[in-house]
Design a protein around this nucleic acid. Structure first.
Lengths: 97, 97
DNA sequence: CAGCTTATATCGGTCATCCGATATATATAA
DNA sequence: TTATATATATCGGATGACCGATATAAGCTG
């Protein structure tokens, strides 16, 4: 637990799913978007395994374009996100003003 | 990472701070409220150490009434919650409809 | 008082998240 | 071509959140 009692550990997969649902992105873009929201960029050793998990779970599909790989939600990923969002909103009901 | 890609690990301290900010509560009440939101009750071995951390961080004060201990936010706890809430809303902007 | 329930607390161990360092591969520059 | 930068990926290790079992302590009931 850090000073703000909110290290958000365990939320990275959810956050990636959500960000990619807004717009297909490649890894670097995801990292930058997280940095913008969170204040610090996840290390490659954090981000890419998380992406890999989501891909192996069947939630993300990738399109390789040269050096970069653009990730998008699969139908199964959309469904998983819907479930996770509902749970998330339930748990944190009232937190957001 | 679980099936829904959202196990919320690391959010317990934040959630406790938030719940207690709505209304001073004792441990059992906190556990029940979390169970209602989350679907499963945190085990005593999870909840009470988390409360202890918050108390030792100076965020919670306790009032003992017989067997039960009612927890409330300290001024420092209120400030910590404000900071954490701002961060939380920033990170998850757009998730809640 | 004795026995049972409830609330709080601790301990040991497990597991997953995360980071830093490093590796690979593709693109760009000189 | 050689060198450099960028994007993706993996590995080892550390941290700490979490659970189950167990312990303490206070109330209730007989």
């Amino acid at each position: 637990m850090n000073d703000e009692s909110c290290d958000m550990r365990g939320m990275l997969g959810f956050l990636i799913l959500f960000l990619v649902s807004k717009k297909p992105m490649h890894g670097k873009e995801i990292a930058d978007e997280i940095a913008k929201r969170k204040g610090e960029k996840p290390s490659p050793g954090t981000l890419y395994p998380a992406i890999k998990n989501l891909r192996e779970a069947g939630f993300l599909e990738e399109k390789k374009e040269g050096k970069t790989i653009t990730y998008a939600l699969t139908p199964s990923g959309k469904k998983a996100l819907t479930v996770a969002k509902r749970k998330f909103c339930n748990i944190f009901l009232g937190v957001f003003p």
